[in-house]
Design a protein around this nucleic acid. Structure first.
Lengths: 357, 357
DNA sequence: CTGTTAGCGCCTTCAT
DNA sequence: ATGAAGGCGCTAACAG
């Protein structure tokens, strides 16, 4: 079973099967009925030559690429893993390919990478903060199908967006801290500036304070940037400056973990001295000590839905303008609770997953 | 600044710049000298039309795709994140695109996904265990450039492979358990069957036992499969069966964490009652309680080198047959040591990263 | 049901 | 330094 030519084309297959190239094309694409024996003959020929249709050629002919692009700031951290997994699943289910591209840390970029430009992808999944609204608008104007993840559409453009409910869950967490644990001095580790999740999480925080007549203290609202080290430094500084607090609400779990470290480094105990709560429910959050009270963000699901919406948009031109996935508070030990109750995280994470009961 | 046509082609640019399409092509590819004013005129035209060359067309014309494929079993877990990050970095640096594809859990597959076939990618990064040696051989025979990750080439094929040193580090860990912590009954949580890393890690384990005249007890070598739940069950069963052991060497950190859970569930203390060591040094491993003694696997670096080798292979036809990246033991608390010493993990993970000192 | 014939958009000799 | 023309491999009318 030697190779005839290193790269057989549809012509080679046609010749070998004794048919025309259109017929071969037809059996490849099952676009119109073909007689059975011809089908088998062609398929045999394809196998014998180990023929693989060249994507570039069919893409050119059909003016479709059958692939989705994913635009991320960078690949890093536990957050993107479930996102990617969700996207990949749907992409595979629908016979698409996935082109991954990172734009790099440097804030929102004003141009999309060439490889993900209009012609190299049928549609683009864009994660929050990687593109400027102008760049998004331009891409949209050029006819590229887009779905925004964790970022809403620029005004009047109605680009489909998939994100999660932030405010109510944040409110619930802070309320829990106030009512269950009698916290009154709750520090806020903010997320990234100009980030929508960050904004709504802070709103939830503020509204909870307001409801229980806890004054908002600017000295307690410090940078977290969704990053462990940033949060660590912020908390260390508060400690050093003598800012008093009995709880910390971090805009995400990475920051919560950074806070935990800063607290430990200063000899504080969690939750005995300070209660901590985060947001996202990362894989790791159930495993650390103490297990983190947080909000479960359905990130895998976000990935799935975003990819589904994009594919639907490509196929039908229609998509839901906004998908808001529900979140749920996950009470574990870092806030001071002694037993878990209610939702405890993604399927594979259950109560027994936490090391310290 | 309206769009002229929704999808401008090289012809539109040529017309607008008052030149021929060949000239436009030349300024795009900077393949031969072009007079300065023509260059500026053409570039202006491209910008005005927001022209993006269609990848399919140039791929077809050049018979290159300028993209790499990455074939994984599935996207999941903390292990792949640094791998992907390393690959992505190099891919971007070299102006390639990255096509990601998962083959699914079902053991080694005998065919590669169509999308990553011969014609859709200039080269393929294949992770251990996703393809059968036959499938690899066939892909190689068809002229596809390949680099294998964590899996060596089928005999006589000399397909470049990038992997890590397993045996010496495993030996060192087990030796540490024996000499420093006086362990004699060391359980082994095996990795995946037919997996090379798994094999060499077990060899390291066995040789260490041998060196110190500790008999190998088959009852202590149980499945781990690189999975938390599998390891958890194995350890639970040993406990239940009354198999005695004073230490566990897990073929990877996921399994080590599963072991930890099983031990806690049974009321055992780590490291007081049982010492634990793992392999990989996942992001999470420094953060759990107790911080995990393990072997640092340079996974990001593996990703980088693999991508580099593949690109070199594509460009020059040459690549190093085998890259064996060094590993290093990371002593933390789960083995019974009270302070860290020596290497403590990836750059961003240092001693203060562990919650319990 | 099957064969013939144009392109798809770009690169690449070959002339000029 | 620039233009003209052929072809990359495939799909999609259009005829039969």
């Amino acid at each position: 079973m030697r190779q005839m030519s290193p790269n057989p084309t549809i012509h080679d297959v046609a010749k070998r099967a004794g048919v025309s190239i259109s017929t071969v094309s037809r059996v490849i694409n099952r676009t119109v009925p073909v007689s059975d024996d011809v089908v088998t003959r062609v398929e045999a020929a394809m196998k014998e030559l180990s023929y693989v249709p060249r994507a570039a050629a069919r893409n050119l002919a059909t003016r479709k690429t059958n692939s989705l692009g994913l635009l991320l700031a960078e690949i890093t951290g536990d957050f993107f893993d479930p996102l990617l997994a969700g996207i990949e699943t749907v992409v595979v289910e629908n016979g698409f390919d996935l082109l991954i591209s990172t734009a790099g840390r440097g804030g929102p970029h004003d141009e999309l990478p060439r490889s993900l430009g209009n012609h190299n992808t049928d549609g683009l999944l864009v994660f929050a903060g990687v593109l400027t609204p102008e760049a998004i608008a331009r891409a949209h104007a050029s006819g590229l199908k887009l779905v925004l993840i964790h970022q809403s559409s620029p005004p009047d453009l109605d680009i489909p967006c998939v994100t999660i409910e932030n405010k109510a869950a944040s409110f619930a967490v802070v309320e829990h801290l106030i009512t269950e644990h009698k916290c009154r001095r709750i520090a806020l580790l903010r997320g990234l500036p100009h980030n929508e999740d960050s904004h709504w999480r802070e709103m939830g925080y503020r509204e909870a304070l307001e409801k229980y007549d806890v004054p908002f203290d600017p000295a307690l609202a410090v940078p977290g940037d969704y990053k462990r080290v940033v949060a660590q430094k912020s908390v260390a500084r508060m400690l050093q400056d003598g800012v008093e607090f009995d709880a910390i609400f971090a805009a995400d779990d990475e920051a919560a973990i950074g806070a935990l470290q800063a607290l430990y480094a200063a000899g504080k105990r969690v939750p005995e001295d300070v209660s901590i709560a985060g947001f996202d429910d990362l894989h790791i959050s159930a495993l650390i000590n103490p297990a983190l009270t947080t909000v479960h963000a359905p990130t895998y699901e976000v990935g799935r839905v975003a990819a589904q919406q994009l594919i639907r948009s490509i196929r039908t031109g229609q998509a839901d303008p906004l998908t808001l996935l529900p979140t749920e508070i996950v009470v574990r030990r870092s806030c001071g609770c002694h037993n878990h109750n209610g939702y405890t995280g993604a399927p594979e994470i259950n109560a027994s997953d936490t090391f310290i009961q």
